[in-house]
Design a binder for these strands. Structure first.
Lengths: 110, 110
DNA sequence: TATCTATTTGGCAAAATAGCCAAATAGCCA
DNA sequence: TGGCTATTTGGCTATTTTGCCAAATAGATA
């Protein structure tokens, strides 16, 4: 009956939740190539600037990105390099899913 | 103005969202040690059996776990081994956050 | 100083998520 | 068969998350 779900799992979930959004994943992918300012990210994403700003603040609160003011803009960059590797693992899951669907199709054709 | 957030990012987000919950992270951690049945997981987590069952179905829909009926129980196991490595990355983020907080504290003491 | 650009914040409504209870299902065992 | 045990499903409410708009803020520049 004990509840073994604890602070550790909550801390993990907080960080992972911050990653778990299409636009934020795009941002992470983009920042992995190098820093970007809000304005350019907004243009690439195509939603309202305030929306992109909020996505960035979610990433910042989770400790995933760093901020640097320079000139007229604010530049964001990845704080921890391993995130894209993690996404590699997610790709493994997806290709594994795809493979399984193929198997099921093959099976039905017979 | 183009929207470069695409299907790929949505697929990634779907998988990552499935991971992003304290109880589900606990389940993943537990399954990483070996398969478990719903009943035992329910006892460890301490919420309603229906809740745990729903968490498991979220993980299953994302392709993260496998299911096997045996005897009176249904056993779940991890389908892709790399997930716990990913959590290693999350730990990096958290310890990096902690380190930064320490720095800020040190700075204020002076 | 006035204005313009870049970014963030507040507020709100719509959508998604979580977790409980009750009820349905499935298979085992007496 | 009838009663158990294990698991899932449906339904409902509370909470959280999204994303837009309008407005505020911060700096740079004319």
């Amino acid at each position: 009956m004990a509840n073994r779900v604890n602070t550790k799992h909550e801390a993990w979930a907080k960080v992972i939740k911050a990653i778990a959004h299409p636009s934020r994943l795009f941002i992470i992918e983009e920042l992995d190539k190098g820093e970007q300012c809000v304005n350019d990210l907004t243009a690439m994403i195509g939603s309202d600037a305030s929306t992109v700003s909020k996505h960035l603040s979610v990433l910042k609160n989770a400790g995933l990105v760093m901020v640097e003011k320079r000139g007229n803009s604010i530049f964001y960059s990845l704080r921890v390099p391993c995130i894209m590797q993690f996404i590699g693992c997610v790709e493994d899951v997806l290709s594994s899913n795809a493979k399984e669907h193929m198997e099921i199709l093959k099976c039905c054709k017979k």
